[in-house]
Design a protein around this nucleic acid. Structure first.
Length: 259
DNA sequence: ATGGCCCAGTCCCTGGGA
């Protein structure tokens, strides 16, 4: 089973690239972040025409997540303990497979910048809620994939120029510590399970020629429960998507799971 | 040349992203 995640930076701006990706890569499931629209504004007909089922958790203008899957699936919107939170950043699916099912979450973790504002504690609180929920999901002892834009640079090797990020909410010690707390529940970073190489990025800023200089960071992750990690076959960053005209600033990353 | 963008929205500027 092929599972991909991609922060599209507005699905309405990216519908052409999205359809091309679905045709060329044909993921069984695709997690989207930053759809930046209401549920009813999502270009669902174009996607359904390509054989996908669509579940969105959108909001006006900002944020918003979605899951696309060839097979019909069960969906849950929002993180538990989320009731007071108006930002749409989490959607979860249980997708049937040949032998059973795989649970997949599409996550758009808050950016948290600037760190000296209320945005940073909001990020950390969201991570706490995610950790609590993930802990519960792991108790099912089933294949589980937490996929999305985590807005966390895990290690210095995950940035072309780590020195530029030392004071940034994506790389602050407290951010990375909380990310490690999540990982320590028993998750495997799919990419790091297959490579310890540097230069593997999923985001390049629009500004200052970051793409042309390969000044990237790795912040989009696929985190696997033990039952998913056991079935990991391969990982691919679809870098060519970032090279297109009118690209998102993120590029997709995907895994093959033998489930 | 030490800067360079892109998105949505009561929309020609502002706020947000990372």
């Amino acid at each position: 089973m092929r599972i991909a995640t991609w922060n599209v930076n507005s699905v309405r701006q990216r519908i052409g690239h999205l359809c091309a990706y679905l045709k060329e890569v044909a993921p069984d499931a695709l997690c989207l972040q930053e759809i930046k629209c209401l549920d009813e504004q999502f270009p669902r007909l174009e996607v359904e025409e390509l054989g996908y089922n669509v579940e969105t958790h959108g909001q006006k203008g900002f944020n918003g997540v979605a899951i696309l899957s060839k097979r019909p699936f069960e969906v849950a919107r929002g993180l538990p303990g989320d009731d007071a939170d108006v930002q749409s950043r989490y959607v979860e699916a249980v997708i049937p497979t040949e032998r059973g099912a795989v649970r997949v979450a599409s996550i758009y973790l808050p950016n948290g910048n600037p760190p000296d504002t209320e945005k940073y504690p909001y990020k950390l609180a969201f991570m706490d809620r995610l950790i609590r929920h993930a802990k519960k999901l792991l108790e099912y002892e089933e294949p589980l994939v937490l996929a999305g834009d985590f807005n966390v640079i895990p290690e210095a090797i995950d940035a072309a120029r780590p020195e530029l990020w030392t004071g940034d909410a994506l790389f602050l010690p407290q951010t990375r510590e909380k990310y490690r707390e999540l990982m320590a529940l028993g998750f495997t970073d799919a990419l790091r399970a297959t490579s310890d190489a540097g230069g593997l990025y999923t985001f390049w800023d629009y500004q200052a020629g970051a793409w042309q200089k390969n000044n990237g960071i790795r912040i989009d992750h696929l985190l696997l429960s033990p039952q998913a990690a056991d079935r990991l076959v391969s990982v691919e960053i679809d870098k060519s998507v970032r090279a297109k005209d009118k690209a998102s600033d993120h590029t997709p990353i995907r895994i093959e799971l033998a489930v």
